[in-house]
Design a protein around this nucleic acid. Structure first.
Lengths: 252, 252
DNA sequence: TCAAAAGTGTTCGTAGTACACCCATGT
DNA sequence: ACATGGGTGTACTACGAACACTTTTGA
């Protein structure tokens, strides 16, 4: 049965490189242009105006944009490596949630040296003042520059993971500020999902699941009047699955 | 901002080993004991009798049970490595579905040599005659022997992944025979989930989603009489997400 | 004719969507 | 007052769970 076949010999460490790559997301409001909005179609986020989902990228010496990453530390787990490597571009404490994505292992995904990439998704709250240094920057996912190797594919995987988890976990805690009006949370969901979300129903769903709770405080009313909004907060600051089984639930 | 800190230097390939470990599942009926059922409580599968979820294990020279796995081939993707390595214990063609689980990277999960494990879950249809050779065997997940290192934890991760995906994908195609009565499929779900599933509702759910279709044929009636069952089949033999968003669905 | 297993149909609860309507504030 | 945004309430739909009832076979 073993079937085996004529497979190449097993590579022991010497020719195999392991890198960690992170897709760090933040919901960011488009930078305020100094000039008044004369340009009718300045390609902002997903829809119209409003905040948009952005990725942290770094630029190599050759001027190529890449995901932040690098090699694994000798005494680190991979997630610790990811945190350390992102720290070159960002204060690590700003990463509110970090989770593994899949491993990219195509033998020729990177030329010359065989390199396996273990990838991570990191989330930064939208109120974190995460201004990256020199050779790094935030880019809206809908208008990314060309990326090195398979990094665009990795960003796509992260986007899909985020969108999926928004619907059955409390993962948005890592994207939202400490306290927020529901309209702001709705915009966050909209930016991450790519389609509008009804604010009023969002509150009901997240309340029923005890994901968000009212803080009792109210925010300032907007620039053009309107009722001041109640401020909410996430009940927990750790990932929790809130709707594990869409169907075939365990009895009781 | 870089924060950096006093992290150890980056390990380049030389001291870092990458292994691939696979959790291969099959739903198996308990081996028929020659003696009549005099023992009242012979610990079979999850509940009472019926088939149970089993894992493929291999035994090392030291007599320790481990997950099948090994090093990565120079010109292979990791999934190809997983398939090749499982082939030592099983015909690879029997693996109907293989997918990545997470990477286990604790620096001391394996003594002496720093070893990172990229893990996979493989599924074998219950009608595949998958009799493993000498130093390998199938074990019910509820009564596993002690496993090497963190392999028990890896099996648990695979179990949870399988249970979750049963509820929102067609992943059971890789556990079921080519054609089956719904009662058999119900037993498969029960074994994998750990709790009973209503056969009649299962048909309705999977029919609505066009996951299973009637073949028009009927099977033989059981040993103790009863109406002969209609035989069904999975419409597709590739993983498909059938219920992507439990909530926050895209409009329309 | 009876037991066993398969299949059909009905009821019920509940989550999520859509949308109308009321409330509070600044100008 | 009135525009603007926030909040509440109410139908409507749909899916899944539970379970009773009918059908088809073998003994």
């Amino acid at each position: 049965m073993p079937a085996a076949g004529s497979e190449p010999p097993i590579a022991d460490g010497t020719t195999l490189r392991v890198e960690v790559l992170s897709v760090v997301f933040q919901i960011r409001v488009p930078q305020v242009r100094v000039a008044p909005p004369t340009a009718p179609d300045s390609g902002y986020g997903s829809d119209a105006d409003g905040p948009s989902l952005c990725v942290l990228l770094t630029r190599t010496a050759d001027g190529v944009w890449t995901l932040p990453g690098g090699g694994v530390g000798a005494e680190e787990t991979l997630s610790a490596s990811a945190r350390r490597l992102v720290a070159d571009s960002l204060d690590v404490r700003e990463i509110a949630h970090l989770e593994q994505l899949s491993v990219f292992s195509d033998p020729h995904r990177v030329p010359i040296v065989r390199t396996i990439a273990s990838t991570y998704m990191g989330l930064v709250p939208s109120d974190a003042a995460a201004t990256p240094p020199e050779a790094a920057g935030w880019f809206a996912v809908d208008s990314l520059p060309p990326l090195a190797f398979d990094h665009t594919e990795i960003v796509d995987a992260a986007r899909h993971r985020l969108a999926a988890k928004l619907s059955y976990t409390n993962i948005a805690f890592a994207l939202a500020p400490a306290r927020f009006p529901m309209s702001a949370l709705s915009e966050i969901y909209c930016a991450a999902l790519g389609y509008p979300v009804d604010t009023t129903n969002l509150l009901r769903i997240l309340s029923r699941r005890a994901v968000v709770v009212a803080t009792g405080t109210v925010g300032k009313t907007g620039r053009s009047g309107g009722r001041p909004p109640a401020l909410y907060a996430f009940a927990e600051k750790e990932l929790r699955v809130t709707d594990e089984f869409a169907t075939l639930r365990p009895p009781m």
